[in-house]
Structure formats: C-alpha cells, structure tokens
C-alpha cells in the first residue's frame, strides 16, 4: 500500500497540515518526543488525535522528523540573529532601516539581515523568523495604520514559536504615526519582548534622527548579545 494511504485513503495532506498548523509552534516538544519514539520497534502508531497508522508506521515518524527539522537552520554558530523588515513609500523608512541595521552590525556576535517587504510574499520569511533571535519592523504610517505586508507577516506568525524573541518597531510618518505603536502592541500580543521603545520620524529623517536609529540598532544588538545593564528609572519618566 502506498505511503499515507493506510486503510482510509490518502490523507498525507491532512497529516502535513496538522503539523504545519497545530504542532509547529511546539516543534521543540515534537523533537523531544521523536527522540523517545524513534528507538522503539513500531507495529502501529495510535495517537490520541487522528488516524491510527497501521501501514508502515515508521514512515510517519520519519516524516515528522523531517517536518520538525528547521528548513533553514542556524548557520552562524553562537551568533545571535536580528532580522530587519521594512517597507518604504518614499525611501524614508528605508533609510531608517539601513541605519538600524548599521547600528546593530556594530555589535560583535550579532548577525543582521535587512529585507524589503515590498511586493514580496511573507510566507518564505516564516522559516527565517522561526530560527531568528529578534525582528525589527519598519513601517510607515499610511491612513493611520501600519502597512498591509506587516499585518500579513504578523498574522502568519501564529504557526511558529516566537515567545521571548526580541521585537522592535520603527518608521517614518507624515501626520499621526500610529504604525510603530500598533506594531509594538501586536508583537507583545504574540509574546515577543519589546524592551526598546520604537523610533518614529516625521517625514525625511535628519542626520540626528538617523544617528538615533543607529543607536537604536546598537541597543537591540546589545540586548540580543546579552550585554544589557540593569536600569533603574522613575515612573514619571514613563508617562
């Protein structure tokens, strides 16, 4: 009998869909469980959920191992990774992104990558974000909102584990500039840590504002590499 057909037709699609949408955020535990199951002699796989797998049960275990193994594994050893995504209408947020990138690259032990979200699909970034230590999102504010590719990106992250990763936002705006705070709140909702207040720049960033973006990038890099000094601040400073 063919792979996946078992005794109830071909359900490979459902098997993979279940991993991608239900198990993937818990990949760490999947790998731990596989390590326990793989040494066993298998006659049958009878999960608490879903079909009983009688035909070549070992193949399902092997396929789960393939699915749970990172598609784009870390290749930089102990270095921390920061992914900077940006979208820019007039080049302003792009210049901010480049400055944030340059600032983060100053930090030893941090690898920074810069991605323009314009015109692209967000799906391919899932594998990268899953393995990254932090993301910084740079969106302009258009009609009082962050731009659609960022909402597409953020709404896709529910299928991977992002808890505790570093998150940050920045962007240029013309009138009200809500995008940065909206992105920060969504990142927090996804359980990213957002320790550095984002940077908003009105229209074209000045040299001084670009320097602030570089310093912002450097602070993000330092947080990723664990070089954070404990801070004491007054509540009045926050309000």
């Amino acid at each position: 009998m063919d792979w996946g057909a078992d005794l109830s037709g071909d359900f490979r699609f459902s098997f993979e869909y279940y991993y991608d949408h239900i198990m993937r955020p818990f990949r760490k535990y999947v790998l731990e469980a596989l390590a326990l199951i793989e040494p066993l002699e298998l006659d049958i796989v009878a999960p608490a959920h879903g079909s009983v797998l009688r035909d070549h049960p070992r193949r399902y275990v092997e396929r789960f191992r393939e699915l749970a193994t990172p598609y784009l594994p870390k290749e930089q050893g102990d270095d921390k990774t920061l992914l900077i995504f940006y979208l820019s209408s007039y080049g302003n947020t792009a210049r901010m992104a480049e400055a944030v990138c340059a600032g983060a690259e100053q930090v030893t032990g941090v690898r920074v990558s810069l991605y323009d979200l314009a015109g692209g699909e967000v799906e391919p970034f899932m594998d990268l974000i899953e393995e990254a230590d932090g993301v910084a999102l740079g969106s302009p504010t258009i009609n009082g909102d962050a731009t659609k590719p960022f909402w597409d990106l953020l709404s896709s992250l529910v299928v991977i584990d992002v808890q505790g990763k570093l998150g940050a936002a920045f962007g240029s705006y013309g009138w009200s500039g809500e995008a940065v705070e909206m992105l920060e709140n969504r990142l927090r909702g996804l359980k990213f840590k957002v320790p550095e207040p984002g940077i908003r720049v009105k229209l074209i960033p000045t040299e001084e504002e670009l320097a602030q973006c570089r310093a912002f990038g450097t602070r993000l890099g330092r947080i990723l590499s664990g070089q954070v000094e404990s801070k004491v601040i007054d509540f009045e400073y926050l309000v």
Binding site: R188, K191, V194, P195, S230, K231, V232, I233, F235
Partner: peptide, 27 residues
Amino acid sequence: ADIDVTVNVPAGIRVIDVSEKVGSGIV
C-alpha cells in the same frame, strides 16, 4: 526581571500600568 529594569513607582499602582510602558514581556 525579564528586562532587568527597576522602576521607582508611586505606591498603589498596578503592575499593568508600568509593565507595558517599560517593555516587559508580560502579556
């Protein structure tokens, strides 16, 4: 502790009123 930030707050304030402003990861 998650961000190693200490805030001097007026007594009586709720944790929620401080944690998001300093960027703690409490959701």
